[in-house]
């Protein structure tokens, strides 16, 4: 994953769900969480910049590298739930 094809995407929490599904994590075939579903009406779909197939490298600056699926999912869930921010910053990579 080169820096050339990474993007920082800000997802504003404008819906009561984030509306994505991820698979993978450390110790699996997919070592970094990959977006497998984007649900209509969710904040991610409204943001329009996240796409199925992208890999999530960081959430609000927290790296997901080396995180197992459960821990990566907890970090994303916390980021959406916290009232400290009205958005989530995802650093994503498009795999060529």
């Amino acid at each position: 994953i080169s820096a050339l094809n990474t993007a920082l995407v800000r997802v504003v929490k404008n819906s009561n769900t984030l509306g994505i599904a991820i698979e993978g994590g450390a110790n699996t075939r997919q070592p970094l969480p990959r977006i497998v579903t984007i649900q209509k009406g969710g904040s991610a779909h409204n943001c329009g910049q996240l796409k199925v197939g992208q890999v999530i490298l960081e959430v609000n600056g927290i790296s997901l590298r080396g995180q197992e699926h459960e821990e990566a999912a907890r970090i994303i869930a916390e980021a959406f739930k916290t009232k400290e921010k009205d958005h989530i910053d995802f650093l994503v990579a498009e795999l060529g």
Binding site: I22, E23, Q39
Partner: peptide, 13 residues
């Protein structure tokens, strides 16, 4: 450690 068996674990948010 060998890959665990949660290969296809998917979490929805």
């Amino acid at each position: 450690s060998p890959p665990k068996d949660y290969e296809d674990e998917v979490t929805f948010f």
